[in-house]
């Protein structure tokens, strides 16, 4: 085939071939679409179960002694409404109940800027003692081996087993904002021992909690009666 001939082999010049092309592409696209929707429908229950399990695990990790988890929606008026299984809501909190059905704590999500990217954490809050009782890093891109210790270092995580976040009388904020201190110098219940080599990431966790505490904890305290009755 010479070059001149090849040039005439364009779709416009040959309507029969362009029809063939359209048929081929539409055919492949249709089959692809069907295949994807079949697989989506087929895997959806398993994926949902996986997600729910991952969330339960995360909540279990931040509140000691939890047996069941109920998701609550925070409405715009600041009220709490128990959420049906597969419903989504903009602002949520997770109430954990122990074996007797008593409220063991509330798990709240918070996020903020870390060293590399946004850090997402889930923290457990005990409304009776007004303590943070555990944290879990849901998502972070902190430097492997250094910053990512915030989710692994047992000494650092021990900071959050009984961290004082008592609210002021008027619930406008914490009595003592959290302070991140040098490793080994923690002396107050509202201080966090940082990790050597991961100072910025440690401070970021403190900052994220400090931003979340005055915003979310008053809602928990206001709605304590709703939370205490296990739906």
């Amino acid at each position: 085939m010479s070059e001149a001939e090849q040039k005439t082999e364009t779709p416009e010049a040959n309507p029969a071939r362009s029809g063939e092309m359209i048929r081929a592409l539409v055919g492949v696209a249709a089959v692809s679409g069907i295949l994807i929707s079949v697989v989506f429908q087929w895997t959806l229950p398993a994926i949902k179960a996986n997600r729910a399990e991952a969330l339960q695990k995360a909540v279990f990790a931040v509140i000691p002694g939890v047996k069941t988890v109920v998701t609550f929606e925070v409405t715009q008026e600041g009220k709490l409404v128990a959420l049906k299984e597969d419903k989504e809501a903009e602002e949520k909190m997770y109430a954990g109940y122990d074996q007797q059905g008593q409220l063991a704590g509330v798990a709240l999500e918070a996020q903020g800027q870390g060293y590399q990217d946004v850090i997402k954490i889930l923290y457990g809050y005990n409304p009776e003692k007004e303590h943070v009782v555990g944290i879990n890093i849901l998502d972070s891109k902190e430097t492997p081996g250094l910053g990512d210790k915030i989710g692994k270092d047992p000494k650092f995580l021990a900071n959050f087993e009984a961290l004082d976040v008592r609210l002021k009388e008027d619930r406008s904020g914490a009595v003592h904002p959290l302070e991140v201190v040098k490793q080994g110098t923690k002396s107050k219940a509202w201080q966090i021992d940082s990790i050597t080599g991961a100072t910025i990431s440690s401070k970021a966790v403190g900052k994220i909690l400090n931003a979340s505490v005055p915003q979310r904890l008053p809602v928990v305290q206001k709605n304590l009666d709703t939370l205490k009755e296990k739906p």
Binding site: E20, L25, V28, S32, L35, V39, T43
Partner: peptide, 25 residues
């Protein structure tokens, strides 16, 4: 069955379909 002019588009479509399937799996 596929004209050569649109083969690359077809490849990408087929590959993208299986990638989506792999993602769900």
């Amino acid at each position: 069955l596929v004209p050569s002019q649109v083969r690359i588009a077809m490849f990408i479509m087929v590959i993208a379909t299986f990638v989506t399937v792999a993602e769900y799996l």
